[in-house]
């Protein structure tokens, strides 16, 4: 397969990047961040996996989730808007608060909407990146490509 350092970077960095994506997503409620940028960071993390393991292995891992992810994300986002309808307005913000270990947590429809955005962005970007690397791998002559070790 590919270089060992790439696989090492993937092993270490991908989980960290995914955590950063979640952090950015949660931070986006009141501060810069949010679903769109979090989705891009998560897609960048998965791109590391594509570089390290190749597109075939990555598609085996994430493939079945990619296409429905667009639908799931859009449905989640619309649901967030529809929840507001129950309170008298499409896209009306609604929040619930609860205490976890002495901290007050706020969850609401804006976050739900953001989650939908994030899922759509991840689905779109990863599909796109996978297609790109598949096209690139198909264009590379097989002699130059490093075949996976058994």
């Amino acid at each position: 397969m590919t270089e060992i350092y790439l696989r090492l970077v993937d092993r270490i960095l991908t989980p960290i990047l995914l955590l950063i994506a979640i952090f950015l997503f949660l931070r986006g409620h009141d501060l810069p961040g949010g679903g769109f940028i979090a989705g891009l960071v998560a897609a960048a993390a998965i791109e590391l996996t594509i570089l390290a393991l190749g597109s075939t292995a990555t598609r085996d891992r994430y493939g079945p989730w990619l296409a429905p992810l667009l639908g799931i994300g859009l449905t989640v986002a619309v649901t967030a808007a529809l929840i507001g309808m129950a309170g008298g307005g499409f896209f009306l913000g609604r929040w619930i608060q609860f205490e976890v270990a002495g901290e007050t947590l706020k969850l609401g429809t804006p976050q739900l909407f953001d989650l939908g955005v994030m899922l759509v962005v991840v689905g779109m970007a990863v599909t796109y990146l996978l297609r790109l690397s598949e096209a690139a791998e198909a264009a590379t002559p097989s002699a130059e490509r490093q075949e996976p070790r058994p």
Partner: peptide
Amino acid sequence: LLGAISLLFQ
């Protein structure tokens, strides 16, 4: 909404 739902079953 219906378009989003119809994308769910890819």
